[in-house]
Design a protein around this nucleic acid. Structure first.
Lengths: 209, 209
DNA sequence: TCCGCCATGTTAGCGCCGTTAACTTGCCTC
DNA sequence: GAGGCAAGTTAACGGCGCTAACATGGCGGA
């Protein structure tokens, strides 16, 4: 969405001194660079070069390097909520398939841009508890809570607390995604499709609920 | 183990110019600093100050900063294998309790030193595929494979492939540990003990096997 | 219409980091 | 006892995040 802001405004837009849309340009540059080099390899100076401005310019729009990463992080949580939400909505609310589809979307999101996923969950100690980041993360998890509530209602446990079951599922899916993108999974079992693990173990957890 | 190498050899041991045990001293310093500031916040220069040597000294013992982290990483995998191995050995081989104890030990290991755990699994792109690191990681996972094999044998499926079940369990436990130490878990459910999630979902996965 | 203000850029410079080159020390061997 | 080599040192480079001081130019008010 909002992709067709013409390239000009993202690189050097308004003629000469003033950029015109630097905040957005820096966010785009940061996202691209993080995807290439990971959140640690990411360099503010690189983002500046990519946006065609001096290395002091970002400080008119972001308090510091971490604030930029924080903004990228919040966007990413929104994107994840979108991805899982639309995946699960292709199946009947409360169905097992709907929950599993959300989990597979979570995995696919991580695999599509591992570095961004690491940025979201690897505790960079300075991004961690900024309230806005927390809030978007919570909104994202709410998605799963809703699915689980619907599932339990479907099973006649409408007033059961969905949290314990949701935490089991989230842990499973997050673990699969983490192991898949950080390497160990393909080292130990290169032929196994991580999505299968979500299906198999997810069904087991749901069946036991 | 090997803790009583006297403090002297770790800081400035042999009189004067030569340190005597710098390699070990740097590893200790790195482990301590990583525990304090995380793998990213860790600085080779800090480790040098802590060991009482100049910033060029480490290059006589390690190729570069990443090689030092790599060594820390391998030690950590050994420690994890020890922790899970001794936890599971307190229950009968092949029992559900034994497998769950291993999982809880994995979680406890992560919680005891979150930064080290992140170093082991967060793909620092340069540490990733160094063969020695891979090898120690594999040895660590072998532990779980053995447990699962014993469990299956106990159930009369002695010739079943333990890999799929092991991957489900590992994903679950790794997910719980990751979410617990990186924050999201205590944000979403501050009152939930992560170990309970391992028990509940672990039993469900084992029961469905 | 012109003018001045202030947001948004710039340049210059600080301190810290990782890394290398060149030099020094002192243990161990012959 | 001499000398070689492992293991330290100092000095320097470039790149980074960040700040201070300066420059530009779009915009609103007289």
């Amino acid at each position: 969405m909002t992709v067709q802001q013409d390239e000009a405004t993202l690189t050097k837009g308004r003629r000469g001194y003033h950029h015109g849309n630097l905040r957005e340009a820096l966010l785009h540059a940061a996202e691209a660079l993080i995807a290439e080099s990971g959140p640690d390899g990411f360099t503010l100076a690189d983002a500046c070069r990519k946006a065609g401005v001096s290395t002091a310019a970002p400080y008119r729009h972001f308090e510091d390097r971490n604030a930029l990463l924080e903004a990228v992080c919040m966007r990413a949580f929104d994107a994840l909520a979108d991805a899982t939400g639309s995946a699960k909505s292709q199946f009947p609310a409360g169905s097992i398939e709907s929950i599993l589809a959300g989990g597979r979307a979570y995995l696919a999101f991580a695999q599509a841009d591992p570095a961004r996923f690491r940025l979201m969950f690897g505790r960079q100690p300075d991004i961690k508890s900024r309230p806005l980041v927390e809030a978007t993360g919570v909104a994202c998890f709410q998605n799963l809570l809703d699915s689980v509530s619907a599932f339990l209602a479907e099973r006649g446990q409408a007033e059961a607390n969905p949290m314990p079951l949701a935490l089991r599922l989230w842990s499973l899916v997050h673990g699969v995604a983490s192991l898949a993108i950080d390497g160990p999974m393909e080292i130990m079992a290169p032929d196994k499709d991580p999505a299968e693990i979500i299906d198999e173990a997810g069904r087991a957890i749901l069946a036991a609920a």
